[in-house]
Amino acid sequence: MVSKRSVVLCADDFGLADGVSRGIAELAEAGRISATGAVTNMPGWRRNAPLLEPLKGRIGIGLHLNLTTGRPLGAMPQLAPGGVFPPLGTLMAKALRRRVPADEVRGEIARQLDAFVEHHGEPPAFVDGHQHVHVLPVVRRALIEELTERGYAGRLWLRDPSDGPAAILRRPVGRRKAFVVQALAAGFAGDVRASGFGTNEGFSGFAPLDLSIPVDRIFAAAFSHLGPKPVVMCHPGYVDDELRSLDPALDSRREERDYLGSDAFPALLEKCGARLSPRPGG
Rank of each mutant, 00 (worst) to 15 (best):
V133R: 01
P214N: 11
T199C: 13
A183Q: 10
P161E: 10
V192S: 06
L276I: 12
V181C: 00
L260P: 08
N66I: 00
P280H: 09
V239Y: 02
C234L: 09
T40H: 07
A186D: 06
L65K: 05
L269W: 07
M42F: 07
V84S: 13
F206L: 02
A153Y: 01
G174P: 00
D241T: 10
E145H: 06
H225R: 12
G74Q: 14
A185F: 09
R254E: 15
R99H: 13
G82D: 15
G273A: 09
F197G: 03
L91N: 08
R254D: 13
F219D: 00
V135I: 15
G89S: 12
A142V: 11
T90K: 12
L136Q: 02
D163T: 03
I144E: 07
A274Q: 04
R155L: 12
L55I: 12
A49Q: 10
C272P: 01
D251P: 00
G44E: 06
L211Y: 03
T199P: 10
D18C: 07
G164R: 15
P124G: 10
E149G: 02
E149V: 13
N41W: 00
L268V: 09
R193Q: 15
F188R: 11
A264D: 15
P208K: 04
G198D: 14
A35T: 02
I144L: 15
M1H: 14
E242P: 00
W157I: 04
V239I: 15
G23D: 08
F179E: 12
R141E: 15
S6L: 12
T68S: 13
P236F: 08
R193N: 13
V215W: 09
A25K: 01
G196E: 07
A75V: 09
L269R: 13
R47S: 14
P214Q: 05
G282N: 08
I61H: 11
P54F: 13
S212E: 13
E108L: 10
R141M: 00
G107L: 12
E118K: 13
G273Y: 09
F116W: 06
L226T: 07
G31K: 04
G107Q: 08
R257W: 13
I24N: 03
V181G: 04
R244Y: 11
V135M: 06
G282F: 05
P43H: 04
F14C: 01
V232Y: 05
G202K: 06
R170Y: 03
R111Y: 01
C234S: 11
N200C: 12
D13E: 02
E256D: 08
P72W: 01
G174R: 07
L67D: 03
L52I: 02
G15H: 06
W157D: 01
E108W: 09
A75Y: 00
N200L: 07
L209T: 10
A49P: 06
L63R: 06
V232F: 03
M76C: 10
Q182M: 14
S195F: 08
H235Y: 08
F223P: 06
L269Y: 12
I218G: 00
L158T: 07
R97D: 04
R5Q: 15
V8F: 01
S245V: 05
L269C: 14
V138I: 14
A115C: 11
V181K: 01
F197E: 10
P124N: 00
M76L: 15
T40L: 01
H134S: 04
V135R: 03
K56L: 14
G196Y: 09
A222T: 06
L113R: 02
V2R: 12
R253F: 12
V100Y: 12
P86M: 02
